[in-house]
């Protein structure tokens, strides 16, 4: 086996304080996205909302889900999954965003 480095081992222990900090960041982002939607930025609302949602997921993935402390294999996996989804959605729009 090649990836035997953390056999049965204890994973990285994240201190409670760090989770509280991440939680605060997530709440702050939520506040920003609600406020921004209230201002009315027109078409930019959705762009901003998705950008903030992506930032929030980055925090959740890296800290709550410990992706930061996992091997490169896991990171490659998740990249593959996201690229696949990106392909599915952009390729569907090859059809919808152009005159039919």
């Amino acid at each position: 086996m090649s990836e035997q480095t953390h056999e049965h081992g204890h994973g990285h222990v994240v201190p409670y304080g760090k989770y509280v900090f991440i939680w605060l960041a997530l709440i702050a982002f939520t506040g920003i996205t609600v406020t921004a939607a209230g201002i009315g930025l027109g078409n930019w609302t959705i762009v901003l909302a998705l950008a903030i949602a992506s930032a929030k997921s980055w925090f959740v993935l890296n800290y709550f889900m410990h992706l930061r402390y996992e091997d490169a294999v896991f990171k490659t996996f998740i990249a593959v999954a996201f690229i696949t989804f990106a392909i599915f959605i952009t390729f569907t729009f090859w059809d919808y965003s152009f005159t039919r």
């Binding site: 939520t30 996205t33 609600v34 939607a37 209230g38 009315g40 609302t45 959705i46 909302a49 998705l50 903030i52 949602a53 929030k56 997921s57 959740v60 993935l61 709550f64 889900m65």
Partner: peptide, 18 residues
């Protein structure tokens, strides 16, 4: 966390279209 992650996207897409 996955359940949370999905909600992070559902919330703006349904509740914040102004």
């Amino acid at each position: 966390h996955l359940v949370d992650l999905i909600w992070i996207f559902l919330f703006p897409l349904f509740y914040l279209i102004h």
